[in-house]
Nucleic acid binder design. Sequence first.
RNA 1: GCCCCCAUCGUCUAGUGGCCCAGGACGCCGGCCUCUCACGCCGGAAACAGGGGUUCGAGUCCCCUUGGGGGCGCCA
Length: 483
Amino acid sequence: MFAAPMSKVITRFAPSPTGFLHIGGARTALFNWLYAAHHGGHMLLRIEDTDRERSTQAAIDAIIDGLSWLGLTWEGEPISQFARAERHREIARQLLETGHAYYCQCTPEELAEMRQRARAEGRPVGYDGRCRDLNLKPPHDKPLALRFKSPDAGRIVIEDRVQGPVTFEAAALDDLVLLRADGTPTYNLAVVVDDHDMGVTHAIRGVDHLTNAARQSMIYEALGWTPPVFAHIPLIHGSDGAKLSKRHGALGVEAYRAMGYLPEAMRNYLARLGWSHGDEEIFSTEQLIEWFDLDNVGKSPARFDVAKLQSVNGWWMRHLDTLTLRDRFMVFLPHAEDRELADKAARVLETDTGWARFTQALPGLKERAKTLAELLELSAWLFRGRPLPLTDKARKILDKGGRKVLADILPVLEAVPHWTEEALETAIKAFAEEKELKLGKVAQPLRAALTGSTVSPGIFEVLAILERDESLARIGDQLAGHG
RNA sequence: GCCCCCAUCGUCUAGUGGCCCAGGACGCCGGCCUCUCACGCCGGAAACAGGGGUUCGAGUCCCCUUGGGGGCGCCA
């Protein structure tokens, strides 16, 4: 084994701006980013916007927003492929001059008809090369497109880092369009020129580009350029096994942000879709960078499993330190789906008391929430004002004897000299023992009155966080029949 | 139709010829813990698509079948 001369690794994420950043695109970006980071290189962000009809600024913004939220960074400014059209045309001319391209007068309508007939007759549906030897030149009565003259014999072998060697018969690949009749470059030309010009060393993208790799490889050959290392990663499928596409209701990453998933959990989960490192399941970003490589990327497609994402997210919710989690929560709030609660939360968190209580409650809360959205829900008792609305279950507890318990314990609580978790626990346990009640019979009515719910952190903790006045007032509300 | 790719529990995967009557994780089921809910812990059900080879030996290599996916645009 000889060590190849190592040039700096440059990868690129090259989305077309026709919609949001969906899950598959996000994973492709992640793999490119991780690979570059692992090898001490960097990733480029190139917007493949040569199709002016479909490219939108809103989509570009959504992609950048999504990548930023995921914490995926790129070198320099995002590159517009369309802006480099002149350079693409220059190379197209070069291809024409060296005999690797020719003009074609077929109209899109004629081509569609040709394909339709071929399909009906069971023949290959590619372009049949009818203009190949016509020697057409620009001033012509019909608009001319420029086609690549692909070799009609031999085979193309792609040494793919993920797929292994993949062989195509050159004859099976038809003559693709390089320049449209309006003179704009198409994808396959632009990609080759850009990857070459930008020094891209590794092209990591979905397998749906595998055939393109063969076509591009022929163009590299004609130009005398060296192609980058190709790595075609399997696609992500929906739970039904079909391609996870926008058409199948796949969501953009911003939807996952709105559902309360953490970027670290998203990276963790996405990395595990197709890539593995032994039996490891949980990866910090540092570990991902240290361990990620193309060797451990599988070849078979993976299905997107929300339950697993939930679980990974829950792990990160529990293990992120409180202050970091609080930051994530603040970023999440403006995107939360429950606007009513989120707005209330934002207002309460602007107050010193609200901020302090939330921070204090967070360690107990985060254990119980699998997403930031659940965290918001579980924190509602900190955000909603008195009298607290009750859930059906909470109301039931109060109605079925709970109020009596509250009435009995109120004087006990009022008499607690120092309102601390420990003192409250001692007092309440003593009360329960004296009344011969199981602790649950006391805790649940208290929980209902203090949080309006049957689910919350430990009851002594809740009392301590709410402090004396607020706690007693909430109990008083229920005794007075409010809420 | 033609070309290419893929195939281990329901799902994500470990496995690179003997360490595998197949391991982990999610989910599911049962139990423990317990002031609720989570967490945590213990246990359970659950897979090498089928058929041929190669080999002393195959989940691992080869072939076929079946199933799935992708591509075949003047989209990217």
